[in-house]
Amino acid sequence: MVRFKNRWLLVELIPAQNSGSQLPTPLDGQKIWAALRQSVLSNFGDVGWGSVASSMSVKYYSPTTNICIIRVARDHHRIAWGALTLLTGIEGSRYIPNVIHLSGTIKHAQLAAISHNREVVARYRAQAKTPSAYQDSYDEYLQTSSMEIEGLQD
Protein backbone atom coordinates (compact mmCIF):
# COMPACT_ATOMS: atom_id res chain seq x y z
CA MET A 1 0.00 0.00 0.00
CA VAL A 2 1.33 3.42 -0.97
CA ARG A 3 0.84 6.40 1.27
CA PHE A 4 -0.42 9.66 -0.23
CA LYS A 5 2.23 12.28 0.49
CA ASN A 6 1.52 16.00 0.70
CA ARG A 7 3.33 19.29 0.85
CA TRP A 8 2.01 22.10 3.01
CA LEU A 9 2.49 25.72 1.92
CA LEU A 10 2.22 28.45 4.52
CA VAL A 11 1.39 31.61 2.59
CA GLU A 12 0.90 35.22 3.63
CA LEU A 13 -1.40 37.20 1.33
CA ILE A 14 -0.30 40.83 1.67
CA PRO A 15 -2.95 43.31 0.50
CA ALA A 16 -1.44 45.71 -2.06
CA GLN A 17 -2.43 49.34 -2.28
CA ASN A 18 -5.08 49.85 -4.92
CA SER A 19 -5.17 52.97 -7.08
CA GLY A 20 -8.41 54.00 -5.34
CA SER A 21 -9.00 54.12 -1.62
CA GLN A 22 -11.22 51.04 -1.63
CA LEU A 23 -10.63 48.34 0.95
CA PRO A 24 -9.50 44.91 -0.24
CA THR A 25 -12.13 42.20 -0.60
CA PRO A 26 -12.52 40.11 2.57
CA LEU A 27 -11.09 36.67 1.85
CA ASP A 28 -11.97 33.15 2.81
CA GLY A 29 -10.68 29.73 1.85
CA GLN A 30 -13.06 29.30 -1.09
CA LYS A 31 -12.06 32.60 -2.71
CA ILE A 32 -8.37 31.77 -2.32
CA TRP A 33 -8.91 28.29 -3.79
CA ALA A 34 -10.86 29.71 -6.76
CA ALA A 35 -8.18 32.32 -7.48
CA LEU A 36 -5.44 29.70 -7.21
CA ARG A 37 -7.41 27.41 -9.54
CA GLN A 38 -7.72 30.20 -12.10
CA SER A 39 -4.01 30.96 -11.82
CA VAL A 40 -3.10 27.30 -12.41
CA LEU A 41 -5.42 27.14 -15.43
CA SER A 42 -4.13 30.34 -17.01
CA ASN A 43 -0.44 29.66 -16.40
CA PHE A 44 -0.18 25.86 -16.67
CA GLY A 45 -3.29 24.92 -18.62
CA ASP A 46 -5.50 21.89 -18.25
CA VAL A 47 -2.54 19.57 -17.69
CA GLY A 48 -1.36 21.65 -14.73
CA TRP A 49 -4.84 21.81 -13.25
CA GLY A 50 -5.34 18.08 -13.80
CA SER A 51 -2.19 17.32 -11.82
CA VAL A 52 -3.08 19.42 -8.76
CA ALA A 53 -6.90 19.47 -8.83
CA SER A 54 -7.55 16.38 -6.75
CA SER A 55 -5.07 17.21 -4.00
CA MET A 56 -5.11 21.00 -3.63
CA SER A 57 -7.09 22.48 -0.76
CA VAL A 58 -6.96 25.52 1.50
CA LYS A 59 -6.97 24.10 5.02
CA TYR A 60 -6.78 27.33 7.04
CA TYR A 61 -7.08 31.07 6.53
CA SER A 62 -6.77 33.84 9.11
CA PRO A 63 -8.20 37.24 8.09
CA THR A 64 -6.34 38.94 10.95
CA THR A 65 -2.83 37.97 9.88
CA ASN A 66 -3.68 37.06 6.24
CA ILE A 67 -1.98 33.68 6.34
CA CYS A 68 -3.28 30.47 4.88
CA ILE A 69 -2.19 26.85 4.81
CA ILE A 70 -2.53 25.09 1.46
CA ARG A 71 -2.22 21.33 0.98
CA VAL A 72 -1.09 19.88 -2.35
CA ALA A 73 0.34 16.56 -3.53
CA ARG A 74 4.10 16.23 -3.12
CA ASP A 75 4.72 15.37 -6.76
CA HIS A 76 3.04 18.54 -8.05
CA HIS A 77 3.65 21.11 -5.33
CA ARG A 78 5.86 23.18 -7.64
CA ILE A 79 2.92 23.81 -9.96
CA ALA A 80 0.81 25.09 -7.07
CA TRP A 81 3.71 27.17 -5.77
CA GLY A 82 4.32 28.64 -9.24
CA ALA A 83 0.64 29.47 -9.71
CA LEU A 84 0.60 31.06 -6.27
CA THR A 85 3.64 33.17 -7.11
CA LEU A 86 2.01 34.32 -10.36
CA LEU A 87 -1.24 35.20 -8.58
CA THR A 88 -1.83 38.95 -8.65
CA GLY A 89 -5.36 39.44 -7.44
CA ILE A 90 -8.31 37.79 -5.76
CA GLU A 91 -11.79 38.95 -6.78
CA GLY A 92 -10.59 42.29 -8.08
CA SER A 93 -8.35 43.13 -5.11
CA ARG A 94 -4.59 43.02 -5.45
CA TYR A 95 -2.64 40.72 -3.16
CA ILE A 96 1.03 39.85 -3.02
CA PRO A 97 1.50 36.18 -2.07
CA ASN A 98 4.51 35.45 0.12
CA VAL A 99 5.35 31.78 0.71
CA ILE A 100 6.65 31.67 4.26
CA HIS A 101 7.20 27.97 4.75
CA LEU A 102 7.05 24.67 2.87
CA SER A 103 6.83 21.46 4.85
CA GLY A 104 6.17 17.79 4.38
CA THR A 105 3.98 17.43 7.46
CA ILE A 106 1.04 19.38 8.76
CA LYS A 107 2.68 19.56 12.19
CA HIS A 108 5.60 21.62 10.91
CA ALA A 109 3.23 23.86 8.94
CA GLN A 110 1.22 24.39 12.14
CA LEU A 111 4.33 25.29 14.15
CA ALA A 112 5.46 27.74 11.46
CA ALA A 113 1.97 29.31 11.32
CA ILE A 114 1.83 29.79 15.09
CA SER A 115 5.32 31.30 15.09
CA HIS A 116 4.44 33.62 12.21
CA ASN A 117 1.22 34.73 13.97
CA ARG A 118 3.28 35.72 17.01
CA GLU A 119 5.67 37.72 14.83
CA VAL A 120 2.81 39.55 13.09
CA VAL A 121 1.14 40.39 16.40
CA ALA A 122 4.47 41.66 17.73
CA ARG A 123 4.73 43.90 14.64
CA TYR A 124 1.19 45.20 15.20
CA ARG A 125 2.04 45.98 18.82
CA ALA A 126 5.27 47.70 17.84
CA GLN A 127 3.40 49.89 15.34
CA ALA A 128 0.88 50.80 18.04
CA LYS A 129 3.75 51.46 20.50
CA THR A 130 2.15 49.48 23.29
CA PRO A 131 4.18 48.21 26.25
CA SER A 132 5.10 44.53 26.24
CA ALA A 133 2.96 43.73 29.30
CA TYR A 134 -0.13 45.41 27.80
CA GLN A 135 -3.17 43.12 27.58
CA ASP A 136 -5.19 43.52 24.39
CA SER A 137 -7.39 41.53 22.02
CA TYR A 138 -4.31 40.09 20.31
CA ASP A 139 -3.66 37.85 23.32
CA GLU A 140 -7.06 36.26 22.86
CA TYR A 141 -6.50 36.04 19.11
CA LEU A 142 -3.18 34.24 19.60
CA GLN A 143 -4.81 31.68 21.88
CA THR A 144 -7.79 31.00 19.62
CA SER A 145 -5.72 30.90 16.42
CA SER A 146 -3.20 28.54 18.01
CA MET A 147 -6.03 26.20 19.02
CA GLU A 148 -7.56 26.38 15.51
CA ILE A 149 -4.24 25.70 13.82
CA GLU A 150 -3.36 22.83 16.15
CA GLY A 151 -6.80 21.32 15.53
CA LEU A 152 -6.19 20.92 11.79
CA GLN A 153 -6.19 17.33 10.60
CA ASP A 154 -4.52 15.88 7.54
Rank of each mutant, 00 (worst) to 15 (best):
G89P: 04
S39A: 15
S21D: 12
L23A: 15
Y61K: 09
G92E: 07
V52T: 03
D46K: 12
R78I: 04
L87W: 06
V99F: 07
A126H: 10
K31P: 03
L23F: 11
G45M: 07
N117F: 00
L41H: 12
Q22S: 14
T64W: 03
Y134H: 15
I100T: 09
S54A: 13
P26I: 06
P24I: 01
I90Q: 01
E119T: 08
G45D: 02
D46Y: 08
C68D: 08
A35N: 13
A80I: 04
E119M: 05
V40C: 08
Q22K: 11
I67H: 06
S57N: 13
S55I: 01
D46G: 11
P26Y: 09
S132R: 07
L23V: 11
R37K: 14
I96T: 13
W33V: 00
L41T: 05
S42H: 06
L86C: 06
L87G: 03
I79N: 02
K129W: 05
K129Q: 10
P131R: 07
N43T: 10
V40Q: 05
Q127V: 08
A53T: 03
H108G: 02
Q110E: 00
T25R: 04
A73K: 01
I114T: 08
H101R: 01
V47G: 04
E91I: 00
T25S: 02
K59Q: 15
V121M: 12
Y134T: 11
M56P: 08
Q135P: 05
T130E: 08
I96Y: 11
S21I: 06
G45A: 02
G104P: 05
I96H: 09
V40G: 02
R123Q: 12
H76C: 10
E91N: 13
A112T: 08
V120C: 10
K129H: 09
P97H: 03
F44I: 04
V120G: 05
N43V: 08
P26N: 10
G104M: 06
S62Q: 07
L27S: 06
A35E: 09
R37N: 04
S115F: 10
L36P: 07
S132H: 10
S54Q: 14
V47H: 09
L111E: 15
A83Y: 00
A83E: 01
V99E: 06
G82H: 02
S137F: 12
Y95F: 14
D28C: 09
I32D: 04
H76N: 15
